[in-house]
């Protein structure tokens, strides 16, 4: 554990993430105001004692909305990354361990998916299935699968002919046993670094999609929606737009730093 926290990237990332998680946990039990409670007499109020981060164009408390927004971001990020990891791991491990024709076909499909730049793949799926929480999660996890599949595959290809795997094979262990209880533990560290980086990009993409009106829908307190609403009031209430911007950036920075730290500790500079 000490080894982890002596890495500056990992340490700073963890501190930011811890603060965000603290806000998340508090938001389960208590937010200063109801996230949808409007107070039109008090709209676009500056940060003050009553409203710590001010109010938005409907007089809703920005701090409360940001707290719930963090919840939305982390929930979607977590769901998208874990399902992306699960499918990527399955695809990559079979493809890398068995190789051959199957591997070629699967990798061609993965390469094809990777040819769609950035959020375009997610946008395409949203165009087909429509927006909302579940579809956003599905779209983002499809976006995350290729990365995990690739990493897993290269790990399995490297290890499938190594001595300890051969030894297991001679002892009569079955393929599934070798794949998941012997090879998998060796690539966990690499996968966790990738998971952290994918978490960052999932949060970023969710915010981006919601900003464009293609992800979560108002009045849901997604940080991306707040950003797009706040942009209209940039001149009147410059702090309003900065709050969701900085929150998104902090979340993304935290996961990127943790991922970088893990990668550095795995012994490779990317």
């Amino acid at each position: 554990m000490k080894r982890y926290f002596s890495n500056p990237s990992f340490l700073i990332g963890s501190i930011i993430l811890f603060m965000m998680l603290a806000l998340l946990v508090i938001s389960f039990f208590h937010t200063p105001y109801d996230v949808t409670a409007m107070d039109l007499a008090n709209k676009l109020a500056k940060p003050s004692q009553e409203h710590f981060l001010g109010t938005d164009q409907f007089g809703r408390d920005i701090l409360s909305r940001v707290m719930k927004g963090i919840e939305v971001s982390l929930l979607i990020g977590f769901m998208a990354v874990s399902s992306g990891l699960l499918f990527g791991l399955l695809i990559g491990s079979f493809s890398g361990y068995f190789g051959g024709r199957l591997d070629e076909i699967i990798m061609k499909i993965i390469d094809t998916l990777m040819a769609f730049p950035g959020v375009l793949l997610a946008m395409m799926l949203i165009a087909v299935f429509g927006n909302g929480l579940l579809n956003t999660i599905i779209a983002l996890s499809v976006m995350a699968v290729p990365r995990f599949a690739r990493i897993t595959r290269s790990g399995y290809m490297e290890l499938r002919d190594s001595d300890f795997v051969k030894a297991e094979r001679i002892r009569g262990a079955g393929s599934l046993r070798i794949m998941f209880s012997h090879i998998l533990p060796n690539i966990v560290s690499e996968l966790s670094a990738t998971a952290s980086l994918s978490f960052a990009s999932a949060i970023m993409s969710e915010a981006g999609l919601s900003y464009l009106g293609l992800g979560m829908q108002p009045p849901s307190p997604s940080l991306g929606i707040m950003l797009s609403e706040a942009q209209d009031y940039m001149l009147r209430a410059p702090w309003y737009v900065l709050i969701p911007t900085i929150t998104i950036a902090l979340l993304v920075i935290a996961f990127n730093l943790i991922g970088d730290g893990l990668q550095e500790m795995n012994g490779g500079v990317k």
């Binding site: 960052a200 950003l227 942009q231 001149l235 410059p238 900065l242 950036a249 993304v252």
Partner: peptide, 23 residues
């Protein structure tokens, strides 16, 4: 450079607008 790597481009856009256009 680590910061600018981590900040999503649209957040960077909003920050740049706040600085160079609004301010």
């Amino acid at each position: 450079s680590q910061l600018s790597l981590s900040i999503p481009s649209f957040c960077m856009g909003i920050l740049l607008i706040s600085i160079f256009s609004v301010r």
